[in-house]
Structures are given as structure tokens and as C-alpha cells.
């Protein structure tokens, strides 16, 4: 479904991704691990189309189309979803309005009728319970005054509503206590389906106790240096990155 070939990207002239190759099939969950500064977040941002990053080489095919030719919003409409590491606030715009606008943008793209406010409210209320967010959050400004954990749950809520083909989770586990982690993990597991792929970027193994990936990749200095099954995550947890020849201190 997703095929990343020799992807190079830089920000402000500094090369961060130095030739990423990755194949992801529908129904799979992939985890990308690696020390700070290895390029994990950059990979997420580049796939989602953040224009602050410049792609200097390579291609990213999703279902045969080159994603890199599409604008950010077009990628989203083709089913690319990014759960942000640091979700930004949009004061005065209610979560409900924001979510409905997004859902309807996607429906419009697929040639479906827009959802009216009442229909959407029902759906959003039900879905918010799934991530343990009180429906009152739907009335508040987007991420406005949300705690760190609430913001992350709000991201998963968006994923559940937008039903992406490819869900990219950028450090969705960071800053969560154990209960919140469980809620987020349940949400991600609910996302798992045969026609959807999940790409999780994480620094820690602990999320992988709740979400079992099909593949684990280690990213270091802009390249994937090792790939394996779920057991690789445990090995990293025990042994750190040193045995792979990665100097964590330098990398970060």
C-alpha cells in the first residue's frame, strides 16, 4: 500500500532523512523506533506533507500514486492521517466544528453527501466515549486548554472519525500516564483493520506492550539500520541502541 523509496529530506538546508526505504502493506502495524534526533518525527511530517521540510530525493507511493506530488490537504483526502506529537490549539473554533469540517472535506472528496450537524454530533459523541473523552470536549476550542493526555486522546478521536488508509502516530505515547496510555492504545487497536496501515513512531517500548506491531524498524541518523519483528522492540528495551553501533548521545 505504501512504498517509500530512497527518501531524502532536509529542513533549513540540513539533511535529516538520508535515504529511507520502507514497504507497508494494508492491515499491518509498523513501529519506528530510534534515539532522539534520528529523523523519526521528520519522517512523519514529510509523509503528511509539512512544507517546512524539503524533499530532495526519492519517492513515496501510496496505492501507486506519488504522494509527494500532492498538497497536504490532498494527501489527507487520500487517507493519510497524522496524529501530532504536539497538537496545536485553535482558539474559538469548537472541536465539533473542526471535526465536522474535516470529516465533510473527506466525504466531499469521495463524492459522498456531507453529514449534517445532528448526524455528526451523534457520531462524535459516541466516538469520544471510545477514547474516554467527555463529550463536553467537543464544544471546547480545538485543543484549547486541553491537558497533554487530552490532546493525545483528541488526536486518536480524530483518527477514528476520519478513518484513514494510513494512520501515522507521532510519539502518541509520550507524556501519558499508564491509564491514558491504555486508552490511547485501545484507540489505536480499534483502528486496526485489513485495509488500513498504521505507522507508529515511538521512543519507548512501553506502547508496544499494548499495541503489538507486525514489524519494528530502527531509525538512526536518517536511515533504517535494522528491521525485525515485535521481539526487536524488547531487545532495544533491554540493550539500548548501542549494540547496533548507534551512539545515542551523539545522535541526540
Amino acid at each position: 500500500m505504501l512504498s517509500i523509496k530512497n527518501l531524502h529530506a532536509s529542513v533549513e538546508g540540513k539533511e535529516i532523512l538520508k535515504g529511507i526505504n520502507l514497504e507497508i502493506k494494508a492491515g499491518e502495524i509498523h513501529a519506528i523506533m530510534g534515539p532522539n534526533g534520528s529523523g523519526k518525527s521528520t519522517l512523519s511530517q514529510v509523509l503528511a506533507g509539512n512544507e517546512a521540510f524539503e524533499v530532495t530525493d526519492g519517492e513515496v507511493l501510496m496505492d501507486g500514486n506519488n504522494l509527494l506530488d500532492l498538497a497536504t490537504e490532498e494527501r489527507a483526502r487520500e487517507g493519510v492521517f497524522l496524529a501530532f506529537q504536539y497538537p496545536v490549539e485553535i482558539p474559538g473554533v469548537s472541536n465539533m466544528q473542526f471535526l465536522r469540517t474535516a470529516v465533510n472535506a473527506l466525504r466531499h472528496h469521495r463524492g459522498e453527501d456531507e453529514m449534517n450537524a445532528a448526524e455528526f454530533m451523534k457520531l462524535a459523541r459516541e466516538t469520544s466515549k471510545q477514547v474516554d473523552l467527555d463529550p463536553s470536549f467537543l464544544k471546547r476550542g480545538v485543543n484549547e486548554g486541553f491537558s497533554g493526555g487530552e490532546k493525545k486522546r483528541n488526536e486518536i478521536l480524530q483518527a477514528l472519525l476520519l478513518k484513514p488508509r494510513l494512520a501515522i502516530l507521532d510519539e502518541t505515547d509520550s507524556g501519558l500516564d499508564i491509564d491514558a496510555l491504555k486508552v490511547v492504545a485501545d484507540g489505536v487497536n480499534a483502528l486496526k483493520s485489513e485495509d488500513r496501515a498504521v505507522l507508529m513512531v515511538t521512543h519507548y517500548q512501553r506502547l508496544l506492550n499494548h499495541i503489538v506491531p507486525d514489524y519494528v524498524h530502527v531509525l538512526a541518523d536518517g536511515r533504517i539500520v535494522k528491521s525485525g519483528g515485535p521481539e526487536l522492540a524488547f531487545e532495544l528495551e533491554e540493550r539500548g541502541y548501542g549494540w547496533l553501533g548507534i551512539n545515542e548521545a551523539v545522535a541526540s
Binding site: A48, T72, E73, I90, Q97, A105
Partner: peptide, 18 residues
């Protein structure tokens, strides 16, 4: 803010006005 809106499929124009 613009990236968040666009990443969710919302047109840039609609995003600014929102």
C-alpha cells in the same frame, strides 16, 4: 494551525476563515 487543518483535509482558504 494551518498544517493541522490541512492535514485533516480542510482547504487552506476554509482553514484561514475558520
Amino acid at each position: 494551525q494551518m498544517f493541522l487543518c490541512r492535514q485533516r483535509g480542510i482547504d487552506p482558504e476554509q482553514a484561514v476563515s475558520m
